[in-house]
Amino acid sequence: MIDMQQLSFRYESAQGNALTDITLHIPRGEFLGIIGPSGAGKSTLLSVISGVIPHHYTGDFYGACVVNGMDTVEVTPTDLSRVVGSVFQDIDAQMVSSMVEDEVLFALENFGVPAKDLDSRVEEALATVGIANLRHRSLDTLSGGQKQKVAIAAVLAMRPQVLVLDEPTGELDPASSQAIFRVLRTLNEQGTTVVVVEQKIMLLSAFCKSLCVMDRGSVRLHGTMREVLAHPELLREIGVNCPRVATLHEQLLAAGLSAGPVPICVEEAKAMVEGVLA
């Protein structure tokens, strides 16, 4: 679905590269989490996928990024947006209107969806993220979690095949963050490819299929959640936290106990503990 080949990028005004020699393949139907310290290039990578780089932010672009057969350098971000939907961290700044319904209508009207279909498309997008009841509300009466769902719905209205999100739960409490990730999981199960940048490793490990760890413009680790979490020392060196159950696994191994494969959730950790005592 997304294919990056030896991709490097330097922002016009910057000294060093924001991305260096990235080769990354993201298959259709993937649910990929991206984590890494600040300045690792996570947001830059998302901007490449959505075509904002190099069309909006210019600079030295080497290599290629192909999304669904389209070279992101050759097509415009607007054309790309029929395939890739983008959700940003700043919840208020990405809104273009003051009412929920208008926010979702914005893209539909822009892309020239026939008037007779508008109503059902809005309904569908809002229902997918579970906020059909908020359709006629004003945005400033909503909570942060609800607004972020509106932002996702507004992008979903275009029926994108890929959804990229940049720290969508940055300002949300644990329950609202989980709710957003449950929405993402549902979408992924329905076939959407999801790429999400996030600092909360517990959320990523609980929901994503694979994990990509970035550091100073490069991909340091990429694989299934279990493959990546099996390298706790490397993760710490990069500056990424491990879920506590993975840290426990590491400590059990260090104590000479046979703990088996690294657990990625509490249920698996429970099985691990029972295994250690068996």
């Binding site: 426990l248 950790a269 429970k270 503990v273 005592l277």
Partner: peptide
């Protein structure tokens, strides 16, 4: 997370809140 784990393991693990405590207890 570790509290969730010790809660799911039952009453014998009531005093365990951290990775270190859990490892020590298991040893």
């Amino acid at each position: 997370q570790i509290m969730q784990l010790s809660l799911s393991l039952g009453a014998n693990y009531d005093d365990i809140d951290t990775c270190e405590e859990m490892t020590e207890s298991l040893i």
